[in-house]
Structures are given as structure tokens and as C-alpha cells.
């Protein structure tokens, strides 16, 4: 009885769904879209991330090595980061996972790991970039991505960050189009962007690095959407959302002070709870 309930618990952990969805996206990207994900990079990222997580587990004296979170970070990095250099892919993974153990504030890690890995590489190297246009804008593809992503969110029960981000960002895009007198096809086309949906469903949604209260999360999403819009359409720099998330991350502790809430814990067997209490 106990064993079976533990078995059930395991499948309630949304991270299994997240891993399944991200893996299918990687496969879809490689097989159907052929958009330049190199398997060597994917392997380098996964191995480095798991390795650093293992070292971090020893360093933080955690009771159990947890491969799920680093796998999710690895898959997000694989989907978004492009580089011809393995060393850079490895560096991104190491920075991402390392930051979870080193950059902490009040029991939470400060930055979304994959986001920090991506931005550090993008800013510090000419050899790493994000190919945001490579998903195309085929509406059906976008729709599928959105549904799959939503599945993950409903399991994570913290959908408000994603929904708020998408609504506010879409509102800004439609508002801009209305002001410019542009046809609706333009903001629609801007929204049908696979990288934007991956960001909204799999990056900003991370419950460990968003504010603890629902109101805080909506506020945070609004901030990220606005900063992303400014970067993209006032400064005309690419990858607005990804840069906006890292710039907004330091406000999370502030928002948490204003609006109190409970630190998120992945639904997981009791053995893991100790681990999660430390928030890694």
C-alpha cells in the first residue's frame, strides 16, 4: 500500500511531465525542424549539469542526489542555446546548476538556472546565441507547444506566472500595433514564436525562482513582460524576454517581502522533502 502510494506520488511530481514535454520538443526540433541542435551539445549539457548537481549535493550536504531539476535545466538550455563550441555549452550548464547552490537568498536560489546560464554566455561570448526565429510561426505548431506546456503548468499548479506574462506581453504587442496602425497580422505573428512560448511555459514558470504568493507572481510576470517589451521594441535588441527575466530576478525577494507566500515544494516522496526544504 505504502509502496503504491509512493509510486503515485512520484507521478504527481510535475517535473516528470516537464521532462517528457521538453524531450519531445527537442526531438521535434531535431527531426521535424532541423534547427541546428547538435547532439554533442545536448550530451555535453546534460552530463555537465548532472555532474555539477552531484558535486553541489555533496557541497550542500543534501541527503539525496536529485537528477530531475538539472535534467529540466539541461533540456531548456539545449532548446535555447546555440553554440559551435562544446566548452561553451558545458560552461552554460555549469553556471546554471552552480548558481542554484551559490547564489541563494532566504532559502531560494535567486536566478532561474537555465536563464542565468544562457544570459551569461550570450553576454560574455560571441560564440553563443539564441535562435528565437527557428521555431517558425506555424500556428499549429505554436498551438501544440502551448497545450503541451499548459499540461506541465496545471500539474505545477502555478500557472498564473505564465498566463499573466503572456497576457500582458500580448497586450503590449497589440497596443503597439494599434498605436502604429499596424494590421493585427503583425502582433499575431510576433506571438507565434516558439521560443517565446518555451520561455513562457518552461522558464518564467519555474516555481522555485518566482515569488511565493500568487499576487507576487502576477506582479513579477507584469514586470518581466514590460521589460521584455522595452528591450525588444524600444532598444531593438533580440531575446527581450530572456534578458528581462534575468534583470527582473533580483526583485523576487522584494516582492516576497511585500506579499508573503509559501516556498514551493515539488510534490515528491517524503525522502525528498528534506532535500526540498533546502530549496535546491
Amino acid at each position: 500500500m505504502k509502496a503504491s502510494s509512493r509510486h503515485l506520488d512520484r507521478f504527481q511530481d510535475p517535473r516528470y511531465y516537464q521532462i517528457a514535454v521538453l524531450t519531445s520538443l527537442v526531438c521535434f526540433g531535431v527531426i521535424a525542424l532541423d534547427f541546428g541542435i547538435r547532439w554533442q551539445n545536448a550530451a555535453t549539457i546534460v552530463i555537465t549539469a548532472l555532474g555539477v548537481q552531484f558535486l553541489g549535493t555533496l557541497y550542500a550536504k543534501l541527503p539525496r542526489f536529485d537528477p530531475l531539476s538539472p535534467l529540466i535545466t539541461s533540456l531548456s538550455l539545449t532548446l535555447l542555446l546555440r553554440s559551435d563550441e562544446f566548452a561553451l555549452a558545458a560552461a552554460a550548464a555549469a553556471i546554471a546548476i552552480g548558481s542554484k547552490f551559490l547564489l541563494r537568498f532566504r532559502g531560494k536560489h535567486l536566478f532561474n538556472p537555465a536563464n542565468l546560464g544562457l544570459v551569461t554566455l550570450m553576454v560574455s561570448s560571441d560564440q553563443a546565441w539564441v535562435s528565437s526565429g527557428q521555431w517558425g510561426s506555424a500556428a499549429i505548431g505554436a498551438f501544440t507547444l502551448a497545450c503541451l506546456g499548459f499540461l506541465v503548468l496545471t500539474r505545477a499548479r502555478r500557472a498564473e506566472t505564465t498566463i499573466a506574462f503572456l497576457l500582458i506581453y500580448a497586450g503590449l504587442l497589440f497596443g503597439r500595433a494599434a498605436w502604429l496602425g499596424d494590421p493585427l497580422a503583425i502582433p499575431m505573428h510576433q506571438l507565434q514564436n516558439g521560443a517565446l512560448l518555451i520561455f513562457a511555459f518552461f522558464m518564467i514558470s519555474d516555481p522555485k525562482t518566482t515569488p511565493n504568493s500568487p499576487a507576487g507572481r502576477v506582479l513579477f510576470a507584469a514586470l518581466v513582460a514590460s521589460v521584455a517589451f522595452i528591450i525588444q521594441f524600444i532598444y531593438f535588441e533580440p531575446n527581450g524576454p530572456i534578458l528581462a527575466l534575468i534583470m527582473s530576478a533580483p526583485t523576487v525577494p522584494l516582492i516576497d517581502m511585500l506579499a508573503r507566500g509559501r516556498i514551493y515544494q515539488w510534490a515528491n516522496p517524503a525522502a525528498c522533502a528534506k532535500n526540498e526544504a533546502k530549496g535546491v
Partner: peptide, 14 residues
């Protein structure tokens, strides 16, 4: 100077 150019709002396909 650095490398290949691609479009960010449309797919660039070889």
C-alpha cells in the same frame, strides 16, 4: 565580423 546572420522573426532554413 563574427558569424552567420539569421532572421529572428522568421525561420531561416538551409
Amino acid at each position: 565580423r563574427t558569424g552567420r546572420v539569421e532572421t529572428t522573426n522568421y525561420r531561416t532554413v538551409k
